[in-house]
Each structure stands twice: as structure tokens, then as C-alpha cells.
């Protein structure tokens, strides 16, 4: 079981308190009706599914209830870092937690 750091509670807690919520940094378009069918398809269905660093959303569902973002390595499953919703993608160059 993974340990996850909630950036709102500032605590590292067992995975069972959290729920996965899909890829991060996919903002809902401001005016969906202005999008072409292809653009809307991409928003709805197309995900990056990388091998390695993945930006994703989690919710501290059995805690503070907040949605937040995380960087996780999909090979090792390890969390590199977590950060609050709305914050930009973190600079990972200084990160030591990234497991290859």
C-alpha cells in the first residue's frame, strides 16, 4: 500500500484514504461548444498514458475531501511529489524521489 502526502492536510497517509481521479492538467475548455469534434474528442478521451512520469489527480476522500495533483512514476508506482490543485506542474529537476 502506497503512502500519499496530502498537500492540504500536510500529512503522509495510507493509500486507502485516497481515491484516484484521472490525469491532471486537463482543464475543462471555457467554451466547449466552440470546440471542433476532434478537439472535444481529445479532451474527453485522449490521455497521455506514459511509461514513467505521470501527472495525475487524487482526492483525499476519507480525509479533507480535497482534490490535488501528484506526480507518480507509472513503472515503480512511486509518488514523486504532490501539490495543490491549480498550481503549475512542479519543476522535477531538483527532485530526488523520482524512481526510474
Amino acid at each position: 500500500m502506497l503512502l500519499i502526502h496530502c498537500p492540504y492536510c500536510d500529512e503522509t497517509l495510507p493509500e486507502a484514504e485516497f481515491a484516484y481521479a484521472g490525469e491532471a492538467h486537463i482543464a475543462r475548455p471555457a467554451d466547449p461548444m466552440a470546440l471542433s469534434d476532434e478537439e472535444w474528442r481529445d479532451f474527453l478521451f485522449i490521455r497521455s498514458n506514459p511509461r514513467g512520469t505521470h501527472y495525475e489527480r487524487w482526492r483525499h476522500v476519507h480525509g479533507c475531501g480535497r482534490f490535488f495533483n501528484a506526480v507518480r512514476d507509472t513503472v515503480s508506482d512511486r509518488f514523486v511529489t504532490t501539490y495543490r490543485a491549480g498550481e503549475p506542474r512542479p519543476d522535477l529537476s531538483a527532485s530526488t524521489g523520482a524512481a526510474r
Binding site: 481521479a21 475543462r28 476522500v61 475531501g65 482534490f67 491549480g86
Partner: peptide, 13 residues
């Protein structure tokens, strides 16, 4: 409730 929270927290804060 989770879907509502999601939109409220992340799309329309």
C-alpha cells in the same frame, strides 16, 4: 457529491 466537489474545487473554484 464527488463529481460536484470535483467541478467546484478544480474547474470553478
Amino acid at each position: 457529491l464527488s463529481v460536484m466537489e470535483d467541478y467546484l474545487q478544480t474547474e470553478w473554484p
